[in-house]
Design a protein around this nucleic acid. Structure first.
Lengths: 218, 218
DNA sequence: GGGCAATCTTGTCAGTGACAAGTTCTGGCT
DNA sequence: AGCCAGAACTTGTCACTGACAAGATTGCCC
């Protein structure tokens, strides 16, 4: 299973031009790589997203990520403290990304579609974001990112057409969020494969929601 | 953290009356327990459900379960083969339970409410049932149980009032399932705590769905 | 050019899943 | 009654993992 495309099989950024690496024959028993990775944090993150997208968060191993990045087994800890720290960083990044895409939504239905698209385009983030037991809940970066994304969600609901006018907007929010979240979750866990078939999942979602929100928006 | 109420701290069924256990002074260095647990499979399952409900499937440790049941670290493997086997058994049991409760539903909305109630009453089962990466997908018990539960779901959708008449019933099914599944998922992951407050979650769900399925069923 | 903090390494420990091989018990057959 | 096949459980072991501690290397700033 090839894990990279760099010559030594490790995922490293372009060597920060150190006058030809052959000039430094220290570490004779090792593929000569600089002591400092250069962008280890990002490399670990990318590898982690790959693993999670493929096999879920439970398949994540810090030591495996270190191997993929071509660093020692304890290197990741310096950037993320521990496994929980890594997952927390991913969740925070996910909330930030989600907030961005929701901001551009011009409609509640559009927000729903964007929510589903986000889950499809960032499956690893999505699979981690809503699992408190995997995260450091008091992490500042996480809490602020989450506050932002849920604020965006609330905003999208508030711009919904007045059908919901009378009702508690929070209830409408729950309904819309549940629908989108459920669809996204079932989709990612391959529970809709049979029904969706080879159609575009977002189209299926849009059509399905038409059944619930009869499209007066025309 | 007390894990049991039996005298030796292990979770064992009433000793299958073997003429007073003091009569068997073998295993002198051990709390005298019968070589055979008596109902280890069920004990492991119960303990596993506790752990998962409290801390999620990733917190599950076969050795920990063995300790709780008062057996050796390899004993669980005999009943479940491995970790995946245990989770698969739980998922199968969950689908069977879900199928039962859905059978008793007299309405699509009622089915949704029952779905949410199931998730609340069997959080551990629910958290495992829809995670293919944790399960042995080709397990016979699992596939048959799942076939039954999804059949029940399809049935509930087909009995829905004819509002959906023209539409693809599979689409209506997706919409209803997504809504219920999303709500249940967000509820279990404590993402609705703030909005639900101290209200009954099932009431909240019922009310929220009213917004989407305007209750002509009165 | 000297020191300091960030980055990365080596070494180690306890916990875990999986497997192999042995032990103890149960239940059924004759 | 005796026995034996196999179920239920144990002990022992291996590779792997997360976490921590202590040391090595390096960029960088004054």
């Amino acid at each position: 299973m090839p894990r990279s495309n760099s010559p030594d099989g490790a995922d490293r950024p372009p060597s920060p031009d150190r006058s030809d690496s052959r000039d430094r024959p220290d570490r004779p028993d090792r593929p000569d790589r600089p002591y400092h990775h250069g962008d280890l944090r990002r490399a670990i993150l990318r590898a982690a997203l790959d693993v999670i997208a493929a096999d879920g968060p439970s398949a994540l191993s810090l030591r495996d990520l270190a191997r993929r990045a071509g660093v020692s087994h304890a290197a990741p800890a310096h950037h993320f403290k521990d496994r929980t720290g890594l997952l927390t960083a991913i969740a925070a990044e996910g909330h930030a990304l989600l907030a961005t895409t929701l901001t551009e939504a011009d409609d509640l239905r559009d927000a729903g579609v964007r929510y589903v698209r986000f889950a499809r385009e960032h499956p690893a983030h999505f699979q981690v974001m809503f699992r408190p037991e995997l995260l450091r809940e008091d992490d500042l970066e996480l809490t602020t990112a989450r506050a932002l994304s849920s604020e965006r969600l609330r905003l999208a609901v508030s711009t919904a057409r007045p059908e919901f006018g009378g009702a508690d907007p929070r209830l409408a929010g729950i309904a819309a969020w549940s629908l989108s979240h459920g669809f996204a979750t079932l989709l990612l866990s391959h529970n809709l494969d049979a029904v969706v078939g080879d159609r575009d999942p977002e189209d299926v979602f849009r059509t399905a929601t038409e059944l619930l929100f009869p499209s007066t928006a025309r």
